[in-house]
Nucleic acid binder design. Structure first.
Lengths: 216, 216, 216, 216
DNA sequence: GATGAATGAGTATTCATTCAT
DNA sequence: GATGAATGAATACTCATTCAT
């Protein structure tokens, strides 16, 4: 009866896994990705060895964090897609996704440095991407979004907003909303005075290349 | 003529100083501020001791880099102010300043992490700020810039663009120009469909507080 | 029985701790406090990391050495106090304490340089002091010790003897006993030809000030 | 006429030499032998290169300091020898020599560590030794000094006093005089209660061996 | 001769990772 | 499985010494 003896352990293991991920999110948020795994372990209330049992190395732990966060953003995107008004849907997505990321500053660093293009991350991205694309294309079909933006612009926009949020820190934690508002105004369909976008959007293949070329 | 015999040595020293700053910019750009000074020294073709002779510690070197760069941006701002059309002036400034920063990606990390509020940095910031304020206020006086943006928004905008540039890396090094265009469109005076900015701009005192509260 | 499974590890750790302290005593004795912790680690047969696991930094290691040694001296003082004859008690203490210190020459440097007034050291000193004071006062009460010496003179006397021992090194490792004998003769109660002590003894508060003002 | 062009230079050089020695004494006194030659040079108001022109390396500089100081002590001994009363002569010597050494704390460290038995030091010692021996032997001949002390005990006595002075630092800079008084009382000829010296004095040859075996 | 710039080996300390218990 | 002790490579920084000016 392997089940009887496995299940409890798996439950413990899963609990520990969650504890570690949670601790890692806190610690990395507070002190950046440079924080030590000893600190993560201490925060999680387990030994370092346990961290290494759950995650083969630091990078993998960081990637798991990334994956989890991407999952949350995918959820946000899916819920936004359910919104009937396509402009509201897009704005809601940008707002909620940015809000998630802004509240969790360590994440920006993760987005920037921790993605070695490993499979799990690529798969998580692959789940998010089509939803975002759907949001963008529906808005353009409905004539409420300028036609020269692409779905690949969305990650950049979120990334920029997170950077603003991280910089402002606790001094002005909501200031990114100003820049989201400005950007949203700039996403409206072209009218008099609209500047043409001077460079083509990134192709999906380029997004992949970017992820693969991130440092470290 | 003691000058004649003093200068040559100083020239060497100054040359090395420039070499080190240049190497530091390259190395920090490529591998982030975490790169070692041994690597900087190797890249500069000097011994570590020489780096430490010119800059008492790593932070000081980083600050020198930052200060130099801020100086360049101040120059860009001053030249833009000479432009008669106030909208063109503002756009030119954003474009040229962002171009400077995007070409030198390590700078973003410096902006984020290396400013311990030391005097030299604050002084460099103090020189840039009034010029930017002049650009912004003139544009608003001339009715070409939405009235709810503030001069303190400009550093955030540049910062976001640099983040985009850094993320895109060599795969799409000019993509930040898309986002600058979008943001510029969002800076136009309010018209139908313009969203109100949901949070007040940062006060100058808050900008100071942000600089002082940066991590590390 | 979690104890049974905990202890073995702790035993190893404790063993290593002892090994490191022992190695540190040897290395510091041989090459002074300037010796590197790498050397201590090598001598102890462990990695540097292990030294740092046991002692957060070099100073703490040095202090631990100091504390342990002070403890031994306190033991010597307590055993001497049990001796019924008060002169013999004092002489025995000086002899045995000096013998301990002379055998472990690195200690002199520790006494001189390593005491940053940290709590553990002060506490260790606080345990020794009253016993020494009791030895001195009893001898004076019994009229066998000159009345113008104070208990604060004892550390100085030991310190001087250790300096002599350290200087003589292995060439004449017992020579400090000559100077102890000379000093002991000088501690006898005043008689014809006794010179008055020209400066007052250090007050307890001055002893503290000395410890706090030690260089480095 | 090499004289005409040499002399002025030699005067400058000699001046610099003296400046450097003086600066070294101050710096080493204040911060120990570990102080850097850059600091010595700065204190002397010359470049490091000049220090190295005058003294081939740090050890040699330290030895020169030692030699100079031994010279001063020799002068003290010689003047003491001129004193008609042989006990007063010995006491005066111990007092003045110790006073010289106590005022110059860095010297103790020099005495302890810097003497590699090089020729110049040995020669300086060779000049001091017979004078001290004369002081001791005359006092013994006149029956005012215990007969079991030897002239080789004198350096040890001075060394111990210097150690006490260094330990007391600025808190109680004259406290060594207490211990000199106690020791002097112990040097009186044997009478009732005098303890025999338990170990033979160091032979002159042993003193040499000690100097040669000093660490570093 | 004098100067101070350059060098690089050496030191304290940290931290990802392994492994005995 | 979990634990935390051990490891050692890596990093910032110092300083004796050399050498071009």
């Amino acid at each position: 009866m392997p089940n009887a003896s496995d299940r409890p352990l798996r439950r413990d293991a899963a609990l520990n896994r969650r504890r570690i991920l949670h601790a890692a999110a806190e610690v990395f948020t507070a002190r950046g990705l440079g924080a030590s795994l000893d600190d993560v372990a201490r925060q999680a209330g387990v030994g370092v060895g346990t961290v290494y049992r759950r995650f083969p190395d630091k990078d993998t732990l960081i990637e798991a964090l990334f994956e989890e966060r991407l999952g949350a953003i995918t959820g946000v995107a899916e819920r936004a897609l359910a919104e009937p008004d396509s402009w509201t849907a897009l704005v809601t997505f940008l707002e909620n996704a940015s809000s998630l990321m802004a509240a969790d500053r360590g994440l920006r660093e993760i987005l920037m440095y921790a993605s070695h293009g490993r499979d799990r991350i690529l798969r998580a991205k692959a789940r998010l991407q089509p939803v975002v694309t759907a949001l963008v294309e529906r808005a353009q079909r409905d004539g409420v979004l300028r036609t020269d933006v692409a779905s690949t612009d969305m990650p950049f926009i979120q990334f920029m907003l997170t950077a603003a949020a991280e910089y402002a820190g606790d001094v002005s934690p909501d200031i990114w909303r100003r820049y989201l508002a400005i950007i949203i105004d700039g996403l409206r369909p072209a009218r008099a005075g609209t500047s043409p976008l001077p460079v083509p959007a990134a192709e999906p293949g380029q997004m992949l290349a970017i992820m693969r070329s991130l440092p470290r």
